[in-house]
Design a protein around this nucleic acid. Structure first.
Length: 855
DNA sequence: GCGGACTGCTTACCT
DNA sequence: ACAGGTAAGCAGTCCGCG
């Protein structure tokens, strides 16, 4: 192999990686550790030049951890001091929250992060009981310097200077009001949040990338480590107008011709190396590189492929590096959107469950109304133009996932990075418990509080925890009020505004305050538990979550709806409010999740107990006031025609006696309850319908039945008075008859009969039972299809011995109609129960069959 | 050997 | 890898039955 000339982009990469000592207003987006310089590297995005700028720490900051002076012997300490990777040991003090006293510590400063917690040699944390020794070094750095990620800074003479932003007048006013309403001891925190969260959100220049490789075997994903196959196409689509696809000419493959009329460029290459050079050139020149599964596949593959001798790049020439399940780009930031969309908090709270599959096709089809191009033949059989068009589409929708809805995803990532104090690429990759961990660690450092070890929290006095309802859970959760079967007109729903965060704030809940060490606090009991809560100091969790709650509920949420505000301020308020919702929603859950480093079960137990207390007390109060509660779940109550006055009475009472805001959420024209909990249908005055928990709504229900169900819902949405039900009943009857007959005669495409159920584990992992979707999946596997965890299996119920077949392998005449009739009945029973009709009764026959046969 | 009662597993949903 | 509570259907097991 002849020596290749260095690609032209290498000089630019070097230049970018030299770092800067001067920089105009830029946003801190990421941080990492530069091993060569043994220093933290901060990555800034300069919105004016739209480039990434690196800054290398030159303050002499070094990795460190702590040991408690009364927990280490002189000998051990000397042994550590003598290590060649230890720079020195100094005495410091921090607040020990668990013991409510000052902790005397030795700070052990090391030459590099691996000395504290590496695995290649015996590290300090393996040697002694060390505090704060398992925090990534660049996180340590950000916390120590007090630099929130996502905020604006400038650099002068290599000094980093946070930029002070004045708030717009209208915004400032709202803040003053919020501060007045909030507890005085939360004031400082709220002001800090406002400073941070009201900074502008600049447009982030970015490029999406996708590669195509012919798999060695059909239906198998090519091995990225090996990278034995050619990269036959790569698409690059950017937020600033790049739309190109690079296609490799291959022997015996037709060029074909363009069919897609989208405005993008197709470039043909005879050399794979030349093609990759263009890709790397693009990577080097973009601050943000987007992929869908690039950590595992695209960037991983490109890296290994480029280094193969027949391609011949050197490591310096490849602007990609690999970590543990992560691919980094140089000099910018790589966001792997697959990791972002699989994050449950993102899925549920940011996108309201608007997608359910975690594939690019699944996410894009749901959020963008545009998915991948569906291929009829294997990749290798496409003409070059067809291949190019297919490849282009993937980068195009990947970019769109970050730009639709006014760039909501990019904005959310920035706002979350501000709250979590975490690099944007980490925010995009890791789960909510880590966001909250980072946020809490930052706060500990800011206040000079020692971060407890897991064992410190575990070592506390054993507490009796409330018995969970569900076997296998750790403690008892919320209360669900048994609904009273029937239809109720004029139902008001009241609910506690972010109940758990409110309780954390109002009742001072935190890991160090629940069951605190003070004798005198033991009388401050939490109802129906053995727990008590501190009366002497505000807990750190209570401060952080309380202030976040206040600024969201009292400030950003109303701001996002305020009429006289500039649209950009309003949009910002909306994004912030959304991001805070995600964090707040998880803040209680993490206390009871043992992966969370500040896990403390009594705090979670206490929160849930207070939630039960709040709702039961409120039910009691309603009874006193003569209001009928027809239903309730955890933080909400459904009240039957209570009247404005009585609603005011209850909400005022909750505010005064419980200290928790109880709001009127909505008023239903009517609600229909079956006897089931978490299962109802409510019609609002404008005719829109809330369907909760009913089978007809569930995503796995066959489309045919789901459509039939929603037809009935539509009929019910038009019911305005009690007497309208007569007519609705007749309409439903007619409609149902038709559908049922269609089912009998199998007058629908078989796809509409498919149950669609997710494989939550890999097929092999089902060892205890073999559910139907797994049986169907096995038939697919037998056909050579690959089935992974997360795939959705579409199957129909059939009359063969297994009882199921994948929809792709079944024909209509194999369908077990009886099973579908049963399922339809089950689905409709839930509505009809509520309306007081029997399935049979509604059609005027004793048995369902009679009714249908009589047609 | 078979069917009903039961428990447990699994998924999707609600807050 | 944030929590617990609920509904539903099916898989698998136990028990009774001369």
């Amino acid at each position: 192999m002849s020596k290749q000339q260095a690609p032209v982009y290498v000089a630019d990469l070097k230049e970018a990686e030299n770092g800067v000592t001067e920089l105009k207003d830029s946003i801190l987006v990421s941080a990492t550790y530069g091993g060569e310089r043994k220093a933290v590297v901060l990555k800034f995005y300069d919105p004016e030049n739209r480039r990434i700028r690196l800054w290398y720490d030159d303050t002499g900051h070094k990795p460190y951890c702590f040991v408690k002076s009364d927990r280490i012997t002189e000998g051990k300490l000397n042994e550590i001091k003598k290590r060649s990777d230890v720079v020195g040991v100094e005495k410091v003090e921090k607040q020990d929250l668990l013991n409510d006293r000052t902790a005397e510590l030795y700070k052990i400063v090391a030459t590099d992060p691996l000395a504290i917690g590496g695995s290649a040699r015996v590290s300090i944390r393996d040697l002694v009981e060390a505090w704060e020794a398992d925090i990534k070094y660049y996180e340590n750095y950000l916390y120590d310097e007090g630099f929130p990620v996502g905020a604006f800074y400038r650099i002068e003479n290599s000094k980093i200077i946070p930029i002070q932003y004045g708030l717009p007048i209208a915004v400032q006013k709202g803040l003053e009001k919020t501060l007045q309403e909030s507890n005085p001891d939360l004031k400082k925190s709220i002001e800090d949040w406002a400073w941070l969260l009201s900074q502008p959100l600049p447009d982030l220049r970015r490029i999406a990338l996708d590669i195509e490789v012919i798999p060695a075997e059909e239906n198998r994903i090519p091995d990225a480590q090996e990278a034995a196959q050619q990269v036959i196409a790569t698409s690059l689509v950017s937020s600033d107008g790049v739309r190109e696809v690079l296609v490799l000419r291959r022997k015996g493959v037709d060029e074909g011709q363009r069919t897609v009329n989208d405005n993008f460029e197709v470039r043909f290459f005879d050399s794979e190396r030349d093609l990759l050079e263009v890709v790397f050139d693009r990577i080097v020149h973009y601050p943000f590189v987007l992929t869908f599964n690039g950590d595992d596949f695209d960037l991983n593959y490109l890296y290994h492929r480029a280094l193969r001798p027949e391609i011949g790049f050197s490591k310096d020439e490849v602007p990609i590096s690999l970590g543990n399940n992560v691919a980094y780009v140089r000099p910018g930031v790589h966001l792997d959107l697959y990791k972002t969309f699989i994050n449950r908090s993102v899925q549920v709270y940011a996108f309201n469950n608007r997608y359910s599959e975690h594939t690019l096709d699944g996410v894009a089809s749901s959020l963008l109304d545009e998915g991948k191009i569906h291929l009829e033949v294997p990749l290798g059989e496409l003409s070059l133009y067809e291949l190019g068009e297919y490849c282009y589409q993937d980068s195009k929708i990947t970019l769109q996932l970050t730009s639709f809805d006014d760039n909501i995803l990019m904005k959310l990532l920035v706002v979350i990075s501000r709250v979590a104090k975490m690099p944007i690429d980490d925010v995009a990759r890791i789960a909510v418990s880590n966001w909250i961990r980072s946020m809490m660690y930052f706060e500990h450092r800011r206040r000079n509080d020692l971060i407890p070890r897991r064992s410190d929290l575990e070592a506390r006095e054993q507490a009796v925890i409330s018995e969970p309802i569900i076997k296998g859970k750790k403690y008892k959760g919320g209360i669900v009020v048994e609904p009273t079967k029937g239809v109720y007109f004029d139902v008001s729903v009241v609910d506690f505004a972010s109940l758990y965060p409110s309780l954390i704030k109002v009742y001072n809940l935190s890991y160090e305050t629940v069951r605190c060490i003070h004798e005198e606090c033991r009388s401050n009991k939490i109802p129906d538990t053995s727990h008590w809560v501190c009366k002497k100091r505000r807990g750190i969790t209570s401060t952080v979550i309380g202030s976040l709650r206040d600024i969201r509920v009292n400030y950003y949420k109303p701001l996002s709806k305020q009429k006289d505000l500039r649209p950009e301020d309003k949009a910002l308020a909306n994004v912030v409010s959304q991001a805070l919702k995600v964090i707040l929603n998880a803040s209680y859950g993490v206390m009871g999740a043992d992966i969370y480093p500040l896990y403390y079960l009594p705090a979670a137990d206490a929160t849930a107990a207070l939630g039960r207390y709040a709702i039961t007390q409120t039910i009691e109060k309603c009874r006193e006031l003569g209001i009928t509660v027809v239903y309730g779940d955890t933080d909400s109550l459904f009240l039957r025609s209570p009247g404005d006055e009585k609603i005011k009475d209850v909400t005022r009472w909750a505010d005064e006696k419980l200290g928790i805001e109880l709001d009127l959420d909505k008023v239903y024209r009517y609600v229909a309850f079956s006897q089931r909990k978490k299962n109802y249908l409510g019609v609002l005055p404008d005719g829109s319908v809330d369907v909760k928990g009913l089978t007809g709504k569930k995503s796995h229900t066959p489309l045919f039945i789901r459509n039939a169900f929603y037809d009935s819902v539509e009929i019910l949405s038009r019911v305005k008075t009690e007497s309208d039900f007569e007519h609705a009943r007749e309409e439903i009857k007619t409609q149902l008859r038709k559908k049922y007959l269609a089912l009998k005669n199998k007058e629908m495409p078989i796809e509409e009969l498919a149950f669609k159920v997710m494989m939550s584990k890999s097929p092999k992992a089902y060892t205890k039972t073999k559910p139907q979707h797994v049986k169907a999946a096995e038939l697919l596997i037998k056909q050579g299809k690959e089935v992974k965890a997360g795939d959705i299996i579409a199957f129909v119920k059939t009359t063969n011995s297994a009882g199921v077949k994948p929809v792709s392998m079944a024909s209509v005449n194999e369908v077990d109609t009886k099973k579908y009739e049963d399922y339809m009945r089950g689905t409709f029973d839930q509505i009809l129960d509520a309306l007081g009709y029997e399935f049979e009764e509604i059609v005027g026959a004793t048995k369902l069959e009679d009714f249908f046969w009589s047609q």
